[in-house]
Design a binder for these strands. Structure first.
Lengths: 146, 146
DNA sequence: TTTTAATAGTAAACATGTTAACTATAAGGA
DNA sequence: TCCTTATAGTTAACATGTTTACTATTAAAA
């Protein structure tokens, strides 16, 4: 008898189930990104910036689910690659405002079709209803206070 | 109009929703682990080993959702800390068999209660039914071929 | 106002994620 | 058997995750 015989088996463990599910979804996205020298994180950042316009770094971190120290490093290379621009905010000099560039937008544009076809493939196999159900449950889980 | 106006907003994006949900679930687990100098990955490895007995590294990687190069490094420190043992398999000398030690089991034992109370707290707030529903959907998503 | 506390971001250190190249061993086919 | 291919694992290099400590600036309290 093992130590955790009273616990859920790892196969029915929420953290691992979330991890595995994410692996499945991200595998084809990573294939796409590898072709264009972009990491999953940079892709998320570009999408958030395109969606939100010029925003401060904390907002990006929040939306793209990254910690600020990681973001600092990633934005440094993205700025060097001219995918984004950064400038100090005038009102609050602690803030750095970040914006996507045309280069960044071009990357999104060029990969939109592939990205969409991946989503569509998942939707086709799971069904719209189940997918919505899943997203609702995930949103609810996020809101839990542990 | 932004580039991805035809795409799902990031808030309704499956990869980010999975990431966020995982953050919520793992936050209290990380708090627990930080107190005992253990990373989330080492915790997963100990649980898998306790559950599966002596297994080869590929099996651990598979179960704990880790890549072999990561596992190689992590097991090296866990072996030094005497939480696991490793030995070459006689039949197939390519394989390394890994086993949890008493030290490792003790760590699990000492944190079982906390781990359980975290699970229970989530279950209490989401409800058993929804949680099962979520786990089923995640399992189904994992099985999708993209 | 002066002090104190909070916020935004960076730096450093160490662990893990990720890919590619490599070694050793085993399995299969000619 | 010899050659080829596949498998298990390691190493190296670079990117990100994670925590702690730090700077600069702003807000709030005394």
């Amino acid at each position: 008898m093992n130590t955790q015989s009273h616990t859920k088996s790892t196969s029915r463990s929420l953290p691992i189930a979330l991890l595995r599910a994410r692996e499945t979804v991200m595998a084809p996205v990573r294939d796409m990104l590898q072709g264009i020298q972009l990491t999953e994180q940079k892709w998320r950042i570009l999408r958030v910036l395109d969606e939100m316009g010029e925003v401060e770094q904390s907002a990006i971190a929040n939306e793209a689910c990254l910690l600020l120290p990681s973001l600092t490093r990633i934005l440094r290379t993205m700025e060097a690659d001219e995918q984004i621009t950064r400038r100090q905010d005038n009102r609050d000099k602690r803030r750095t405002m970040v914006m996507i560039t045309d280069v960044g937008r071009q990357i999104l544009k060029e990969n939109l079709a592939t990205s969409l076809s991946i989503s569509n493939s998942i939707e086709a196999q799971m069904g719209r209803e189940k997918l919505d159900n899943l997203l609702d449950l995930l949103e609810e889980l996020q809101a839990v206070k542990v």
